[in-house]
Computed example of a mutant assay.
Amino acid sequence: MTGDPRTKTATLYRMVMPQHICPFGIKALDLLRRRGFTVEDRWLTTRAEQDAFKAEHDVKTTPQIFIDGRRIGGYDDLRRHFALKVRDPQATSYTPVIAVFAVAALIALAINMLTATPLIGLVGAGRFIAISMMLLAMLKLQDIERFATMFIGYDLLARRYLPYAHAYPFLELGAGALMLAGVLPIVSIPVALVIGGIGAVSVFRAVYVERRTLKCACVGGSGNVPLGFVSLTENVMMVVMALAMTLAISGTISMN
């Protein structure tokens, strides 16, 4: 790109219909304006107009951006034109995991403040783990079939007993909720020990023994997180929480 972008103009063709306004058209308009362009915003308000435009310019999608009379392409092409990053839907991303743990930490801190609990301590750590379990279970429950399909690819128990793959998110959610509430440890502790222990062994075997490259089902079936450290951490946290609760009940340690 040559010249000063502030002196340039762009023409944007985008779909604006009563039942649908193209979101990428809006994003393209915003990006062009933020780059200092004067934009001629041309709306395609009917299917006929859109089809005619596609046929005329031999394109398959809209929006389409033209700068100084030269067609740049769609929104992703515009980002490439400005040397901006374009999201790859197949790329590995730890964003969902970071979001889960960050939100879990904030919720745990908020609960600690509301209950006059020290912000840092065993109680806060336990709440963080329990909330993380519940949030991760929520992600799995968004598409339980997709999760189960990925899960049976490496979990040792799910391979032998398929219903376990469908039950796992509910078990994780239930154990996390009981742990957070501090009730029925006779239920939550065994559940966390079993699913966390089997999960940890399964992940360790698949990744570090068999050296398999798989996607982790820990954030649900739609995630692109590689199987390994994250899933192992999830399962180890459950085991640690269950063991800590067991020691607290026996009087060995104090969770207060």
Rank of each mutant, 00 (worst) to 15 (best):
A125T: 10
F37I: 04
I198F: 10
L214C: 04
T246R: 08
L243V: 15
A181F: 11
V39Q: 09
L193E: 04
R47L: 09
A158L: 01
D30L: 06
I21D: 09
S188T: 09
R42F: 00
A177E: 08
Q50W: 00
D143A: 14
G153C: 06
G73T: 12
A217E: 12
V230I: 13
P163R: 05
V39K: 11
H20L: 12
H166S: 08
M150Y: 15
N112S: 12
T45H: 05
P96W: 12
V239L: 04
L12H: 12
L162V: 12
A102P: 03
E234R: 09
M15S: 14
L156D: 11
L44Y: 03
I152S: 11
A167D: 12
R71F: 01
M17P: 08
T213W: 02
T46V: 07
V59F: 01
R47S: 06
D51R: 15
V39H: 09
Q90I: 00
M113P: 02
P169H: 09
T7A: 13
Y161G: 00
Q50N: 09
R211C: 02
V59T: 15
G3C: 08
K27I: 01
L122R: 14
R47C: 01
I67E: 07
A28E: 02
C218H: 04
P226C: 13
D88H: 01
Y164E: 04
V123L: 10
F101R: 04
V230R: 04
I26Y: 00
F204R: 05
E210T: 13
F37L: 08
A108K: 10
A125G: 11
G251V: 13
T61C: 01
G221M: 05
L232G: 06
Y161R: 01
A217Y: 04
D41H: 08
G182D: 01
Y164L: 00
N224F: 03
V225D: 05
G124A: 14
T252P: 05
G25F: 03
V123H: 11
R33I: 02
I129C: 08
T252M: 11
L136V: 13
G228K: 10
I26E: 11
L184A: 15
R127L: 04
P226S: 05
A10Q: 06
Q142R: 10
I98V: 15
A108F: 03
F170K: 02
P89E: 13
M138K: 00
I72M: 11
G221F: 13
A167P: 02
V123K: 12
M150R: 13
A192E: 02
A130N: 05
E234N: 13
I107H: 01
V236M: 14
M245F: 06
S202P: 08
A10D: 00
A48S: 07
R34E: 15
V240R: 01
A165K: 03
G74P: 00
Q50D: 04
Q50S: 13
M113R: 14
N112L: 03
V187G: 07
V191S: 06
E56R: 14
R87H: 07
